[in-house]
């Protein structure tokens, strides 16, 4: 259940940001999470509801944008979406692929009043 640690970090970051924008309530939180991050959306949602009780974030919409895993061939530099870890480069068949997207764990934006 590392979801709870992740949610606690999110809440800490937003509570710190709020006064900079003169916000007293948060109505929406949007995240970008790469598919390599093994977070369970239901656990995130549940964790968010529990952790934000009695905070200015209570009741805020909680949105997760999933970022697919993107690889780049080490040889021909071709970029493609990784469907399976066993795939070779679809263009030149080279086996070594660098992951260039899919490890995101970010707050994209939040909204408040």
């Amino acid at each position: 259940m590392h979801e709870l640690s992740i949610i606690e970090s999110i809440v800490d970051i937003i509570l710190e940001e709020m006064p900079k924008h003169n916000l007293t309530r948060v109505t929406k939180v949007s995240l970008r999470i790469g598919d390599m991050r093994q977070v369970v959306p239901e656990a995130m949602q549940f964790g968010f509801e529990v952790v934000t009780k009695n905070t200015p974030l209570e009741g805020a919409d909680f949105l997760i944008e999933h970022i697919p895993i993107k690889g780049q061939c080490e040889k021909c530099k071709h970029e493609f979406l990784v469907q399976s870890w066993l795939d070779n480069c679809p263009r030149c068949e080279h086996p070594n692929i660098q992951i260039i997207a899919g490890k995101e764990l970010e707050i994209a934006e939040f909204e408040g009043t």
């Binding site: 970051i13 916000l23 764990l105 934006e109 939040f110 909204e111 009043t113």
Partner: peptide, 17 residues
Amino acid sequence: EVIAIKVPLVKNILEAN
């Protein structure tokens, strides 16, 4: 009507760690 303010952040969640 209260208009919500949008704050773009793009911040690594595990930055503190």
